[in-house]
Nucleic acid binder design. Structure first.
Length: 410
RNA sequence: GGGCGGGUGCCCGAGUGGACAAAGGGAGCUGACUGUAAAUCAGCCGGCACAGCCUACGGAGGUUCGAAUCCUCCCCCGCCCA
């Protein structure tokens, strides 16, 4: 490292937003991190930092960006950052946030979902400075003997004490033995990588601590762990998660991100502002104070927030376009990113909706028309048997429901 | 291994021979309304050649004019006992 920012300065940046839900843990970890930074300064060796991401769906979402931002901070301070893709842990699926077992998938499934993870991560991280690794690299080759060794560092009671397991246990729901392995696997990731610092959501504390325990049993210095608050999903209630489906993917089109943010309940706005924007705390405080006093409407705030979030991942220009598209859609006009469908000949309206993929079945199309949800060039369609004629040289706009638009070219 | 209780639509969950495409809730969709795509109200919510037909209640057979409901075997889950 050519220049090593002062430890105090680094601490200030790195501890921002860190939350363990427990003051003592915070103090301990803060002290350990400081010590590590001092050691790093003295030895000239950057800290090895990582956070793991499970490929349970092909998309990274806003919730992931909280830890990714933390990785970015380490990276900007000159530390050695690994974006770890949990290809092997992903076949079990993290039970931490679940009240029931996850579906298992094959390593191949996980690999294919992980395919674009790194690509997506570059929206937050510096590709030049980021190590990308996959945990099947070291987990797939462990023997039964290795696993027994890992397992003998823990008791069943420790696992059953975890809320998500105890709830299921008390409710008489299935808890599969392999679900216990998840923490062992994640813990072993830290061992295999000789990690100095592991980042995660607060729900990961158990898994992160398992890493510390295993490292100690392997005679290593236990990693420092830093946890960040969990982001709620678009429903404003449950944590944002791929499997719940209440998520906003960072790779989704700008217009989709924009409208999804607008659709998040008002009560979640504060945490969105705190956790996913680049706004300084002072600005956030001011905005919400203005809401309190009525100086600013929630609608305006939401628009500003939605713009900011789109801008983070797609840039200012795309954010501006998303604002315009949302306004257009609200007025029944096709947004700029509406797909184009080639109308080669006269087509029955139901077939057309189905072929243009704006409805999931023809029954769905029929229903939508009967409910007055389909418009052609702004005119509500009432006739199920309507035949749409191609109009060469003139674009027609077909609207199904509030947000599905298709441009018909002929 | 034994005893008991279970497996229902995207999810939760009612239904124990016909009136069942299957109550109710959640999610989702449409309409009205609205600062909002929120809330509220109303409707919809398996598919299709759509007043009808097909597919569906863990799986495979069977009884019956008729089965999610009864019988047989199998698979799976929970609890208790060993």
């Amino acid at each position: 490292m050519s220049s090593f920012p002062p430890v105090d300065e680094q601490m200030q940046i790195l501890m921002r937003g860190v939350d363990f839900g427990d003051a003592q843990t915070y103090k301990n970890m803060e002290a350990e991190l400081r010590q590590r930074l001092e050691d790093s300064r003295d030895s000239g060796k950057p800290l090895k930092v990582y956070c793991g991401y499970d490929p349970s769906s092909p998309d990274l979402h806003l919730g992931h960006t909280i830890t990714m931002r933390k990785l970015r901070q380490f990276q900007d301070l000159g530390h050695d950052v690994t974006f770890l893709i949990g290809t092997f842990t992903g076949i079990i699926g993290d039970p931490s946030d679940k009240d029931s077992a996850r579906k298992q998938q094959t390593l191949e499934d996980a690999m294919s979902k992980a395919e674009t993870y790194a690509q997506q991560a570059w929206r937050m991280l510096d590709p030049q400075k980021t190590r990308v690794r996959y945990n099947h690299e070291w987990l797939a080759g462990l023997t039964f003997a290795d696993i027994i060794r890992l397992a003998s560092s823990f008791t069943v009671q420790q696992f059953l004490a975890r809320e998500n397991f105890s709830l299921r246990y008390n409710a008489g729901d299935a808890i599969w033995l392999h679900e216990f392995f998840y923490a062992l696997m994640q813990g072993y990731d830290a061992v295999a990588q000789e990690t100095d610092v592991q980042i995660g959501g607060t729900d990961q504390l158990f898994n992160l601590m398992a890493g510390r325990k295993l490292m100690e049993s392997f005679g290593m210095r236990p990693q420092v762990v830093l946890t960040s608050p969990i982001l709620v999903g678009t429903d404003g209630e449950a944590r944002m998660s791929k499997s719940t489906g209440n998520y906003i993917g960072i790779d989704e089109p700008p217009g989709v991100i924009f409208t999804k943010v607008l659709n998040v309940p008002d009560k979640a706005m504060r945490s969105y502002a705190e956790l996913v924007t680049r706004w300084p705390q002072s600005k956030i405080n001011q905005l919400f104070q203005d809401i309190e006093t009525g100086k600013l409407g929630m609608r305006e705030l939401k628009h500003e927030l939605a713009w900011e979030i789109v801008s983070i991942f797609h840039g200012d220009e795309a954010a501006d376009r998303a604002v315009q598209d949302a306004a257009d859609m609200h007025q029944g006009q096709a947004p700029s990113d509406a797909p184009v469908f080639n109308l080669t000949g006269p087509a029955n309206i139901i077939d057309l909706l189905y072929r243009a993929e704006v409805v999931k079945s023809k029954s769905d199309a029929r229903r939508l028309i009967q409910q007055g949800g389909v418009r052609l060039d702004g005119v509500q369609i009432e006739d199920i048997d309507l035949v749409v004629e191609p109009q060469p040289g003139k674009e027609q706009v077909l609207q199904a429901g509030k947000r599905r638009f298709v441009r018909l070219a002929s």
